[in-house]
Amino acid sequence: MAFLELKGVSKGFGTFGHRTEVLRDLDLSVERGEFVAIVGYSGSGKTTLINLIAGLQLPDSGTVSINDLEVTGPGPDRGIVFQNYSLLPWLTVRENIALAVDQLFPNWSAARKRQHIDHHVGLVGLSHAVDRRPAELSGGMRQRVSVARALAMDPQVLLLDEPLGALDALTRATLQDEIGRIGSASGKTIVLITNDPDEGILMADRIIPLGAGPGATLGPSIVVDLERPRDRKALNHDPRFKAIRAEIVRWLLGPGAHKSTSVSRKLVLPDLEPEDLDLPRTLFGVKRVARRRSEQVRENIELR
C-alpha cells in the first residue's frame, strides 16, 4: 500500500439544497519520497484537496490515509506551506519558526532549537533577515520563510499549496529551482499544488491534472522522466518536456476535465429599450428617461 492514499474521496460545501460538490471520487496514491504535482484550474478545488490531506477538512465520503493510518485531523507530520504564506505578522522570522519548533520539540535544549532554526533559515537563504517581521519582507522572502517553517517541523509529508502563485515571474523561477532542490534533497514526500504545468514539470516526479469543478476529478498520472537537475532554458527545447506538457494541457482542456463544466446559466438580456437617436433633443438637454420593456403599457389591437 502506498504511503499517502486517497480512496474515493468526495467533498462538497453548502447545506442541503444549495450544495455544490467540489471534489468527486478522487483516488490518489503517492509513494514515500515521491514528489507529486497536482495541476489544475483555479477554483477547481486544489486548496480543498490539500486541506483534506492535511486533515484541516474531512472528506464527505472516502478516506485519506498516511502510512495506513486514516487522517482524522491536522497534525505536524504534514507540514503545509499555505497559499498565502500565513506567517504571523507580529512575530519575526525567527519567532515564526520558533513557534513551531518550541511546540514540536519541547525537550530540545535552547541551543539545539536555535541551531535547528538557523539551519532552516539558512537553507532558504534568509539568514540576514531572521529578525525581520513579515511586513518587512518581499512576497518571495515570505514564502521562503513559510517553506522553512514547514521543513523545520520535520514532517513526513510536505504539502505546498500554490506556493509561488502570488509571485512575479522572476522570483517564481528562482524559487521553483530552490524549492525543487531543497525538496529533493530533503527526501520528503511532497505534494505540490500549482496552476502552472511548466512549474509542475520542472519540479515534480509525477504530475496529476485536476479537472475543472464543480465535481472535479483527477486525471491520469503523467510521469516526468526528465533528468535532474532540470535546467529551465534547456528544457524549453526538450521534446520530452513538450510532450509531457501537451499531455497535461490536452487533458485539462479535453472532455475528461470538462465533463461537469457545462454552463447552465441562462443569459438575461437587458430590459432597456434602445434610444431613438432620430428624435430631436430637447432644448436644455433634459435627459430622456430610459424606458424599460417591462414598464411599457402594451395595447393589443385586434383586427377583425
Binding site: 492535511a54 484541516l56 485531523g73 491536522p74 497534525g75 505536524p76 504534514r78 507540514g79 503545509i80 499555505f82 498565502n84 500565513s86 504571523l88 507580529w90 513557534l99 513551531a100 511546540q103 514540536l104 517541523m153
Partner: peptide
C-alpha cells in the same frame, strides 16, 4: 482572525490555551 492563523495553530496542535495566548490575543490586539 484569519482562518490561516488558526490553521497554523491546528497543524501545530497548539493547546486551547496556547492558541489563545500565542495566536488569538496578538491577532485581536
Amino acid at each position: 482572525i484569519p482562518q490561516d492563523y488558526l490553521n497554523v495553530a491546528r497543524v501545530l496542535k497548539l493547546s486551547r490555551w496556547q492558541t489563545l495566548r500565542r495566536i488569538m490575543i496578538p491577532a485581536t490586539l
